[in-house]
């Protein structure tokens, strides 16, 4: 096998948590395949993040900087990753299955005519991976047949790598001609939140259609803050405009695997379960005793949220003040 090239996401001069998951994935592959482990960072100013990346025991950290690379675009980033992979003799190209990774890596694979193992949860060998399919109801082992392997890891299945110390050499690589092919970044509409990221949080409290109105989510936010958790939602709650869409948990939303997942007024459709079944402990609060969410819940409480959540807040406050 050849070398491994890992695409690391960075923002605001820091590695993103997703980058640390990508490093975890690449270490697992490296164990199986050997070769050189190389990181690549792309942007307009990635020096600080590259220094951070240099502490993870890679054989090299490559940086590609240009003003035109300030905003991520698949059209400009993919040819750079593909070219560096060739130059460095990489036969594995890895990253994290974030919205950037899922957009970028298949385009890289298309350029190189390589097979992709997308959104994998485990490494069997350098060319074989395990991944969830059919909304998490089946697990497949997929083999990449092409010489070059492109693979993205599911963030919740590859815990953040810890730095191993040392300092890998950091090398600047020329960006070359940049052609956005008629694509242009316009803006990112985002909401700053004080709470932890959904995919990172140790506790997630999600509300569903049964919350009825957006303003009712305030009480779930209180619960989040008490537990240091993040707020999530079902698709129905997002579609109804109760909360922003980026809070959606599920097959088409975020996949989460916290220590504690509290599903409030969520029925438990398979597409929702696909995004939270990996949680360590699941609590369901639903007024319908037949709701499918109870089939995966460790602790189920059949009642309305109007009754349960105020009580829950009071009880948790009690034990927090006692400890």
């Amino acid at each position: 096998m050849g070398n491994i090239l890992v695409f690391l996401e960075q923002a605001d001069r820091r590695l993103r948590p997703a980058a640390l998951s990508a490093i975890s994935l690449s270490r697992a592959i490296h164990k199986a395949s050997g070769g050189k482990l190389l990181f690549v960072l792309i942007g307009d100013s990635v020096g600080d993040a590259a220094k951070e990346a240099a502490q993870f025991g890679a054989d090299g950290v490559l940086t590609v900087e240009a003003p035109a690379l300030k905003h991520y675009l698949a059209e400009t980033y993919a040819p750079i990753v593909a070219r560096i992979a060739k130059e460095q003799g990489a036969t594995t190209i890895a990253g994290c299955a974030t919205s950037v990774g899922k957009d970028l890596l298949p385009r890289v694979a298309g350029i190189l005519d390589a097979g992709v193992a997308p959104d994998v949860s485990g490494v069997v060998s350098a060319k074989q991976f395990r991944r969830a399919v059919n909304a998490g109801n089946a697990l497949q082992t997929i083999e990449v047949l092409s010489d070059v392997v492109v693979v993205s890891g599911r963030q919740t299945d590859f815990p953040r790598a810890a730095a191993s110390g040392g300092s890998s050499p950091v090398t600047a690589v020329a960006a070359g001609a940049i052609d956005a092919k008629g694509a242009e970044f316009v803006e990112l509409q985002t909401q700053k939140r004080d709470r932890p990221d959904l995919t990172e949080a140790r506790v997630v409290v999600s509300g569903g259609r049964g919350m009825k109105e957006g303003k009712n989510f305030a009480i779930l936010e209180q619960l989040c803050d008490l537990l240091g958790g993040a707020l999530g939602a079902s698709r129905a709650a997002c579609d109804a405009g109760m909360v922003p869409n980026d809070l959606q948990v599920g097959q088409t939303g975020k996949v989460v695997a916290p220590d504690l997942y509290i599903a409030v007024a969520i029925s438990g459709a398979i597409q929702h379960l696909a995004g939270m079944k990996g949680s360590k402990v699941i609590v369901a609060i639903n007024k319908d005793a037949e709701a499918p969410i109870f089939q995966v819940a460790d602790y189920g409480l059949v009642t309305t949220w109007e009754k349960a959540i105020p009580e829950l807040l009071a009880e948790i406050k009690k034990i927090k003040s006692a400890s």
Binding site: V100, G182, A183, L188, Q189, T190, D246
Partner: peptide, 15 residues
Amino acid sequence: VGREVDAGVEVKKVQ
């Protein structure tokens, strides 16, 4: 195009 990305919605223009 409005794109649903992890952080919210990214607006991208493509020819």
